[in-house]
Nucleic acid binder design. Structure first.
Ligand SMILES: NC(=O)c1ccc[n+]([C@@H]2O[C@H](COP(=O)([O-])OP(=O)(O)OC[C@H]3O[C@@H](n4cnc5c(N)ncnc54)[C@H](O)[C@@H]3O)[C@@H](O)[C@H]2O)c1
Ligand SMILES: NC(=O)c1ccc[n+]([C@@H]2O[C@H](COP(=O)([O-])OP(=O)(O)OC[C@H]3O[C@@H](n4cnc5c(N)ncnc54)[C@H](O)[C@@H]3O)[C@@H](O)[C@H]2O)c1
Lengths: 228, 228
DNA sequence: AGGAGTTTGTGAACGCGTTAACAAAATCGA
DNA sequence: TCGATTTTGTTAACGCGTTCACAAACTCCT
C-alpha cells in the first residue's frame, strides 16, 4: 500500500514523467527540428534515436510516457511529434528568466542567442554592484537587486539564474524566493536552501572538469595496456 | 558468468569507483575545505553530509569505495580525508585545459578564477577567427586552431573545452582528438562523435532551463491544490 | 575492566532507469 | 483477401544508485 509516483494516473491522464525522460525531451525536440530543416517529414524511432544519440528502445519508452503519437509500421510524423513534445515541456510559450549577477558568466548568458529558440527569454538583469546598475548589457539595462520583487511581479518572471559569487548565493536565493521565483538555476559553487515548492538545479562547471580529470588519471594508469 | 565492473578488484585494489560517486567527490572536497577554513579538524559523516547536501548513508558508502579512512566512534580527520579524496580524483596535480572558441562563453571561462583552486589550469586559448587570434584574453594570447596540435603536445594538455557554435563542434572535436586530447567538455548544443578512449561530457544550459520550465508548467496546473 | 554511548563501514532491500524482446498494429504487394 | 514486412508500444528482466539498519569498532566514564 505504498503511494507510487506513477507516470500515469488512474484516470489515464499522462502525468509525472520520469526526471530522466524530461531531461531528454529537449534533445528529441532539437533532433526533430534538425530533421525538419533537412526536409524530413516522417521518421522511425531508429532514425530519431540516432540523431539524438540515444538507444531506440529508450526513445520509444520516453515517448510512451507522453502518449501514443506514432504509427506502427510507419513511424512518427516529425511536425506532429515536435508539437506534442513542445506542448508537454511547456515550449509552446516563452518563459521569462531573470539573471542575478552580470559578471563574466552572467553577461555571457545574457548575450546568448540560443535561449530564445528554446522558449527562454532573458527578461531582466540584476546586480548588486552600483557601478553595474544602470549600465546596458546585451541591450538590457541592469537593475538593482533591491528592485527584484517589483521586476519579478511586473514581468511575470518565474525562473531565476544565480550568477553571483558563491558567498552571495544564499542571500540571492532568499531574495528570489521572496520575490516569488519558484525555479532557480544556480551556477555558484554553493549549496542553497529553499522552501518546499521551489526547484533548484545546480550547474557546476568545475566539477565537470574534475570528473574528466579523474578519468584522465585512470587512463594514465592503464595506458600501457591500451596502447600496447 | 558475466564480467562485472566491480568497484573492487580481486586483488583488493580499490578501482572503478561508480560514476555517481565520482561526481560527488568534488562536492565532499569543497565541504572539507570549508570545514578546514572554519577551523574544524574532525567531523562525523552526519556533519560532512549536511555540509555537502547529501544523505549521510550515501556519503559513507561513497567514501567506502575509496577505502576506510574514518574511525568508528570518532569520525573523519578533515585534513586526512581531504587529501585521500584529492589523491583519488587526481587533484594532487594540476590539469591543463585548452579552450576552443573564445566568444562570450569561452572568454567567461578563461577569466574564471575558481578553476585554479580545483586543480584546473586554463593553459591555452584557441579560436578560428583571424580577428581574435593574437589578441589577449584574461592574460593569455589567443592562438590559431591550426596550431592546436603543437600547443597540446608542447604544454601536455589532456582536456579540451568546446565553446564554439554548434556547427563547428564536430570539426573542433575531430581536431582535438587528432591533437591527442582524450577528454572533452562540450558546451555546444550538438552531438559530437569521438573514437573509443575519448571521454565527452556535455553541458547544455538551455536544457537546464527547459527542465525548470517543465516543472513550472506542472506547478501552474496544480497550484490551486497546493495553495488551497 | 567493563558497560554505555558514538559512529563507521557494509549487507540487504528497494526503486528508478535502461535495454532487450515481442505482440499488436499498420503498410504493401500479389 | 492474405501473408510478408515494418515499426511501434509495452512488458519483463537487469543493473545501478539510494537508503535503511545494524554489527563492528572505537571512546569515555566509572
Ligand atoms: N565565469 C565562469 O566561467 C564560471 C565558471 C564556473 C562557475 N562560475 C560561477 O559563476 C558565478 C559567477 O561567476 P563570474 O565569473 O561571472 O563572477 P564575476 O565576479 O565576474 O561576477 C559576479 C557578479 O555578481 C555580482 N554580485 C555580487 N554579489 C551580488 C549580490 N549579492 N547580488 C547581486 N549581484 C551580486 C557582482 O557585482 C558581479 O557583477 C560564480 O559563483 C562562479 O563561481 C563561473
Ligand atoms: N554564451 C552562453 O551563455 C551560452 C549558453 C549556452 C550555450 N552556449 C553555447 O556555447 C557555445 C559558445 O557560445 P558563445 O555565446 O560563446 O558563442 P560566440 O559566438 O560568442 O563565440 C563562439 C566563438 O567560437 C569561434 N569559432 C567559430 N568557429 C570556430 C572553429 N571552427 N574553431 C575555433 N573557434 C571557432 C568564434 O570565432 C567565436 O569566437 C555555443 O555553442 C553556444 O550554443 C553558450
Amino acid at each position: 500500500m505504498t503511494i507510487l509516483r506513477s507516470p500515469r494516473l488512474d484516470d489515464g491522464t499522462a502525468r509525472g514523467i520520469p526526471d530522466a525522460t524530461v531531461a531528454r525531451l529537449p534533445i528529441y525536440l532539437r533532433a526533430l527540428n534538425a530533421l525538419t530543416e533537412r526536409g524530413v517529414s516522417t521518421c522511425s524511432s531508429n532514425e530519431l534515436a540516432e540523431n539524438a544519440g540515444v538507444n531506440p528502445a529508450k526513445l520509444r519508452k520516453d515517448l510512451s510516457y507522453l502518449g501514443s503519437y506514432g504509427t506502427r509500421g510507419v513511424g512518427y510524423d516529425v511536425e506532429y511529434l515536435r508539437y506534442q513534445i513542445a506542448r508537454e515541456i511547456g515550449q509552446t510559450q516563452d518563459w521569462d528568466v531573470v539573471i542575478v549577477g552580470v559578471g563574466n558568466l552572467g553577461s555571457a548568458l545574457s548575450a546568448y542567442q540560443g535561449f530564445s529558440t528554446r522558449g527562454i527569454r532573458v527578461a531582466a538583469l540584476v546586480d548588486a554592484d552600483p557601478r553595474r546598475i544602470g549600465t546596458t548589457i546585451s541591450g538590457q539595462t541592469v537593475s538593482s537587486l533591491d528592485d527584484l520583487g517589483a521586476i519579478v511581479s511586473e514581468r511575470n518572471i518565474s525562473i531565476g539564474i544565480i550568477a553571483t559569487p558563491g558567498t552571495a548565493a544564499q542571500e540571492v536565493a532568499d531574495r528570489l524566493v521572496a520575490a516569488g521565483i519558484t525555479s532557480i538555476l544556480n551556477f555558484a559553487p554553493a549549496l542553497v536552501q529553499v522552501p518546499d515548492g521551489v526547484d533548484v538545479r545546480k550547474v557546476d562547471l568545475s566539477i565537470e572538469l574534475q570528473i574528466l580529470a579523474y578519468h584522465e588519471q585512470r587512463k594514465a594508469g592503464t595506458d600501457k595496456v591500451v596502447n600496447a
